[in-house]
């Protein structure tokens, strides 16, 4: 009984803290948790505030989108577009425009992930959401003190907290290094032997291609999601993230591109390569765009999204 009393006491105390001083900006303790947090913010947040949505893997998860433009980036690092589409299908009013990254379309729906983010408790009680978990609340509290302006100015907070790893919501080194210009390393290391080995490994994976049966299954699934979203007034656009030119021509990606083009009419695709030359783009590991390119691609995509919304 004493234990139960203590549990209620601490629970109430914590609930009061979270209610009185909610985290100003969610901070997560890792990439996977950031995925879950991002998904919950999308599911339980204000849907009216989003007119466009970006869905995909870590390739698009790194594209900086501003809430000012009402674009929400639901790219899931290590995840798939299918998981993102499943999340969209669970909300009552989906955004008008949904951009779906096709690079890893063969990845299936992660049901465990969906289960972990869309629980009844989290849906009804905000205390049980990822962003309000005590560890994340503590991290967020240290980064953005709830009493507003801190005694230390913003840049000092960053320099003070950087050794503690509290400067960004996504803890992945590459995520922070490549996509946030002010944090990007001043001196980029030139691609060395390790990079070449990395590309070689990825090329062999790409060369193996993808099981056609699996791919067809995914496309069927994608078609069904698109149909449901269109019935609810959303427009779906498929796009491809640029990768290293050697991988761009890999068997797997060519296969994905070809089969998608044969299933969906041209108006479903947005091909930025017609406007921008990607051949000179550099990546951090062959797949993920490097800092400047990431910004560049994101700004072009933002423009296109704004154009299509209007």
């Amino acid at each position: 009984m004493r234990t139960v009393f203590c549990l209620f006491f601490f629970g109430t105390l914590y609930w009061l803290c979270v209610t009185l001083w909610p985290p100003l900006k969610p901070v997560y303790s890792g990439m996977w948790e950031a995925n879950r947090g991002k998904a919950q913010v999308f599911l339980f947040g204000d849907h009216e505030e989003r007119s466009a949505l970006l869905i995909g893997s870590s390739l698009s998860a790194r594209l900086p989108m501003s809430s000012k433009d009402k674009i929400y980036n639901l790219g899931l690092s290590g995840g798939s577009a299918m998981t993102g589409l499943e999340l969209v299908s669970r909300i009552s009013n989906p955004p008008k425009l949904i951009f779906v990254e096709i690079n890893y379309i063969e990845r299936g729906l992660d049901e465990k992930f969906i289960e972990s983010v869309d629980s009844t408790l989290a849906r009804r009680i905000s205390l049980f959401r990822i962003e309000n978990r005590p560890l994340n609340y503590f991290l967020s509290f240290m980064r953005n003190p709830p009493w507003g302006k801190s005694a230390i100015d913003k840049s000092d907070i960053h320099s003070f907290l950087r050794p503690l790893g509290l400067t960004e919501s996504v803890s992945d080194l590459k995520d922070r290094a490549v996509c946030v210009p002010e944090q990007a390393p001043k001196k980029q290391r030139p691609p060395g032997k390790a990079f070449e080995i990395n590309i070689k490994q990825k090329k062999s994976i790409e060369a193996a291609g993808v099981n056609r049966k699996v791919l067809l299954e995914r496309i069927k699934q994608l078609q069904s999601y698109i149909d449901k979203l269109e019935q609810r007034g959303a427009k779906v656009v498929l796009f491809e993230m640029p990768v290293n030119p050697q991988l761009q021509k890999g068997k797997r990606l060519v296969q994905v591109r070809k089969i998608l083009r044969s299933h969906f009419p041209p108006q479903y695709f947005y091909d930025m390569s017609k406007v921008v030359d990607f051949s000179s783009f550099t990546t951090s590991d062959g797949l993920h765009l490097a800092g400047a390119e990431c910004q560049f691609f994101a700004s072009h995509l933002r423009q296109e999204i704004m154009k299509q919304i209007q």
């Binding site: 234990t3 203590c6 914590y14 972990s116 005590p134």
Partner: peptide, 15 residues
């Protein structure tokens, strides 16, 4: 025990 239970309920990681 109350604190540990509180963390189990609110801060459990993915299964």
């Amino acid at each position: 025990n109350g604190i540990l239970l509180f963390f189990i309920i609110t801060n459990a990681g993915p299964n």
